[in-house]
């Protein structure tokens, strides 16, 4: 009996799924409504004068929809906290101490080290450029921060030691997040602006992009270094 009712439910589910798919297809194929583009007009009509950004994307994520940006920043911070506090290595930290760095050097390729050494300053420069010009050209805080983090991570390939204090970096990331929340709340939501001009808005944009870029840089670096130095050891003796 129980098996029979189970099979009925099973059939019912399939029928519901098929009906739902048919309704979806019908609505999708028969829609005749023509929407205008009110949102696009709102976002793209006069964004330079309203927000001070030449780049419409920056205008949207730093002014029109800055609420989204706050929660994105929060998400990255929560994942960093998760990585640090709920990681597997925490429970076993007594057994897995940091290793001395002498064992790493023999693995390093001379070619990689020299090339990264040459490219390194340019990568940092590119990251800073993308952050500073986020409101003018493509890019912005997140992209620039990711490039800066890549520069720091490529440093690991050349010189894999552990002279960063992750706890200080984590603290700084949290303070930066505080500023990231505070700045748009004061400037955009409460409209405490020194001057309602394009210059003032541009200063706000650059400031916000710098904050976001630094925060992303710290967050990604913490995640990377945490994984590299705490999660599992370097099994250099296995020849594979």
């Amino acid at each position: 009996m129980a098996r029979q009712s189970n099979s009925y439910i099973h059939i019912l589910r399939i029928v519901l799924a098929v009906v739902g798919a048919a309704v979806m297809l019908f609505v999708y194929l028969n829609h005749s409504e023509k929407l205008n583009t009110p949102l696009m007009d709102f976002f793209t009509d006069d964004f330079l004068a309203q927000t001070g950004a030449d780049n419409a994307v920056a205008a949207i994520y730093l002014n029109y929809r800055v609420f989204d940006t706050l929660f994105e920043a929060l998400m990255l911070m929560v994942s960093v906290m998760e990585v640090i506090n709920v990681s597997w290595a925490n429970k076993h930290s007594d057994r897995y101490q940091l290793e001395e760095d002498d064992m790493y050097y023999k693995n390093n390729s001379e070619l990689v080290a020299r090339m990264v050494g040459i490219v390194y300053p340019f990568v940092i420069l590119l990251g800073l450029y993308i952050i500073a010009n986020g409101h003018v050209s493509p890019g912005g805080g997140f992209q620039g921060g990711a490039i800066l983090a890549t520069a720091l991570i490529s440093r690991y390939l050349v010189y894999p030691n552990f002279d960063l204090d992750l706890h200080i970096i984590e603290k700084m990331e949290k303070i930066l997040f505080l500023f990231i929340v505070l700045t748009p709340v004061l400037y955009v939501f409460m409209q405490i602006q020194p001057d309602n001009t394009v210059i003032s808005h541009q200063v706000y944009m650059v400031f916000m992009n710098t904050l976001i870029g630094l925060k992303v840089f710290f967050g990604l670096s913490i995640i990377f270094y945490r994984f590299v130095f705490y999660e599992g050891a370097d099994n250099t003796f296995i020849d594979r």
Binding site: G139, Q143, A146, T150, I153
Partner: peptide, 22 residues
């Protein structure tokens, strides 16, 4: 171009190095 820069920075740079280390 914004998405392209993000993809280049994260897909080519970060995640490749992360995978290599992992």
């Amino acid at each position: 171009p914004d998405v392209a820069i993000a993809e280049a920075a994260i897909g080519v740079g970060l995640s490749t190095v992360m995978y290599l280390v992992a």
